[in-house]
């Protein structure tokens, strides 16, 4: 798969606190154009750092990160979706989308039309003039998704985008994400700690183990498409994959990786200071 790789990581390592805190070590994987890849692992295994490296917000200490063959910068064809929607509270929903469109230098006329189209796509056309605090958490997440799609990214980087939502909203948004993905076919790198969610959504799962974050296993998910129509959770293949992944995670625990302790030892890992500039 080397040729067609859209994103390519080779032996990537990253540490914080002047090298004393190794967060990622020897990470190598590729993401092809249009592929949906999930990154799964317990807290503190550097999942968010991995996304920041791909986004170009951070530079790796070891190894190389390549997006379309070049070192990534934040305005490459990438877009981030965060766990909390991170909307600008003083701008309306439409204003928030205009904000990123202006960053990509879109003319105002194009931008208005595109904003409305996107809000339609996430079912929020009527809320264009609402302020974020007037929306529910699920609606805010939808705006965050629309904002990322607005820049027509070839890669969507999603950092536990549904983790803070209630179960029902999460379910709806997963289906919406799959539908949007099957229509637009951008590559998705989806970080989650929810194994079921990873199996449900992705074509490949990268399982990380913590301290420092290393690749434990890469698993292909072969489930019938489109999955938003036929829920795979009842299938034996689903249960089998799920069992397998849980087995690996329990294996990590047996190897002496006390997951809870690790989560506590790295409370800051997910919020590491970004590189300046």
């Amino acid at each position: 798969m080397g040729e067609a790789a859209l994103i390519s990581l080779q032996h990537v390592g990253k540490s914080f606190k002047e090298g004393t805190l190794q967060v990622l070590d020897g990470i190598s994987f590729d993401v092809r154009a249009g592929e949906f890849v999930s990154v799964v692992g317990p807290s503190g295994c550097g999942k968010t750092t991995l996304l920041r490296l791909i986004n170009g917000l951070l530079a790796p200490d070891q190894g190389t990160v390549r997006v379309k063959g070049a070192a990534p910068v934040p305005n490459s064809d990438l877009a981030m979706v965060f766990q909390s929607a991170r909307l600008l509270p003083w701008r309306t929903v439409a204003g928030n989308i205009d904000f990123v469109l202006a960053l990509r230098r879109l003319s105002r006329k194009d931008s208005a039309a595109r904003t409305m189209a996107l809000l339609g796509a996430v079912g929020l056309r009527d809320f264009a003039d609402a302020y974020p605090h007037e929306l529910s958490g699920g609606m805010q997440s939808r705006v965050g998704l629309a904002r990322a799609l607005a820049v027509e990214p070839q890669v969507l980087l999603m950092d536990e985008p549904f983790a803070a939502l209630d179960a029902m909203t999460r379910e709806t948004l997963r289906a919406e994400l799959l539908r949007l993905w099957s229509r637009r076919r951008m590559a998705v790198v989806f970080v989650t700690h929810d194994i079921d969610e990873a199996i449900l959504l992705s074509q490949r799962i990268i399982l990380l183990r913590p301290r420092p974050g290393r690749i434990e296993e890469i698993v292909s998910v072969d489930l019938p498409e489109p999955r938003w129509q036929n829920d795979p959770r009842g299938l034996p293949a689903f249960a089998q994959l799920r069992g397998h992944l849980w087995g690996r995670i329990q294996g990590m625990a047996r190897d002496g990786v006390a997951l809870e302790d690790l989560a506590r030892a790295f409370p800051e890992t997910e919020g590491q200071p970004r590189a300046e500039g």
């Binding site: 910068v73 934040p74 981030m80 991170r86 904000f99 960053l103 970004r274």
Partner: peptide, 22 residues
């Protein structure tokens, strides 16, 4: 707000936009 500045940076906001608009 760190979260908002990081969001803006991830979409490629330069220093000036980051400062005046965030």
């Amino acid at each position: 707000n760190r979260d908002l500045t990081e969001m803006a940076q991830s979409f490629g906001a330069g220093r000036r936009v980051l400062f005046w608009q965030v």
